[in-house]
């Protein structure tokens, strides 16, 4: 399925470049959608279907909708453009360079188990969603619950701020 890999990878990469280069926030969101769809396709082709679908629900269906919604609420319609200052550009480039270095280093030094794993028909479905659920509510219950508590704190805080603003 190498052909499909290149299609998805190109979509994701083109979308990411579009996000960086576009000055219009809504167009940026659409480019982000392309990047997310490409990534979801990559996950699908790696048989990681759950993470692919979560990607679509959380980012494409949730975050992107809220981004566009926020733009429509705050910006005047014809002027939803980004003005990038020199300082921001430098900071963004430095952050990007550091991130790339970390990622590159990680990729080069990692011990990839993929080549060993794909041996026979015994592991026809290595990725079972039931196992994921058992792991989240079994071995990793405490981190999972902690994450949900953090989210709850954020939600209550946002509700409090919104209410305080109104008074």
């Amino acid at each position: 399925m190498a052909g499909l890999f290149y299609i998805f990878a190109l979509t994701a990469a083109a979308g990411a470049v579009g996000v960086v280069l576009s000055r219009n926030i809504v167009r940026t969101a659409v480019c982000l959608l392309a990047a997310l769809l490409g990534l979801a396709g990559l996950y699908f082709s790696l048989a990681a279907e759950f993470i692919a679908v979560v990607q679509l629900v959380v980012y494409a269906g949730g975050t992107l909708v809220l981004i566009v919604f926020g733009v429509m609420l705050t910006a005047r319609v014809p002027t939803a453009h980004l003005d990038i200052k020199m300082r921001e550009l430098v900071i963004a480039l430095c952050t990007g360079a550091v991130f790339l270095a970390v990622l590159w280093g990680g990729i080069l030094t990692a011990d990839w188990p993929v080549a060993k794993a794909s041996t026979g028909a015994a592991d026809a479905q290595p990725y079972r969603i039931a196992k994921l659920g058992e792991a989240l509510l079994g071995d990793y219950l405490v981190p999972f619950e902690l994450a949900s508590v953090v989210l709850l704190v954020v939600m209550i805080g946002a509700a409090y701020l919104a209410k305080a603003r109104r008074k």
């Binding site: 959608l33 759950f50 979560v54 629900v57 494409a60 909708v65 733009v71 479905q125």
Partner: peptide, 28 residues
């Protein structure tokens, strides 16, 4: 063999919303 079929359909329905929102925004 799609083990997350139900979730996948929900995801597709939620991505669908974006088209409507973009249509409204792009119409000026």
């Amino acid at each position: 063999r799609l083990n997350v079929g139900v979730f996948y359909v929900l995801a597709m329905l939620s991505v669908d919303v974006l088209g409507v929102i973009l249509a409204g925004w792009a119409s000026d």
